[in-house]
């Protein structure tokens, strides 16, 4: 009988082994890999520039709001285990906290942060 984490570690080993087998079978089956590089595809014409560039996204503000909530989850996971133990206070405090965060979401929503077309 393995502990919970030991069996997960073992599982990781099995998955990696499985992937090695799959790649091995492919190396045996597939003709020799081409050594040359091919041009990236965008419809048949050669690219004029490298695609690696500073990629502009219109959803940067959402990442900030997301981080706030993601941190909040750190509190919420342990909280679920003590709700009935702590009682009403636990529920009131957690949802007050969530309500404050959500007020920020409403504000951002009104500013149009969640829609970018």
């Amino acid at each position: 009988m393995l502990t919970a984490w030991a069996s997960i570690l073992l599982l990781l080993g099995v998955v990696v082994a499985g992937l090695v087998v799959v790649y091995g079978v492919s190396m045996w089956l597939a003709p020799a890999r081409s050594v040359g590089e091919v041009e990236p595809f965008s419809g048949g014409f050669a690219p004029e520039q490298h695609a690696f560039s500073r990629f502009h996204v219109r959803w940067y503000p959402i990442t900030m709001i997301f981080l706030a909530f993601d941190m909040e989850m750190l509190f919420m996971y342990p909280w679920v285990k003590v709700v009935s133990e702590v009682g009403v206070a636990a529920v009131v405090e957690m949802f007050l906290f969530l309500a404050i965060l959500f007020a920020g979401v409403l504000y951002a929503g009104r500013e149009g942060a969640f829609r970018w077309t």
Binding site: S42, G43, G44, F45, A46, P47, E48, Q49, A51, S53, R54, F55, H56
Partner: peptide, 9 residues
């Protein structure tokens, strides 16, 4: 910002 020229199609 970076401006990538891309022939499409």
């Amino acid at each position: 910002l970076d401006r990538l020229l891309l022939p499409l199609g």
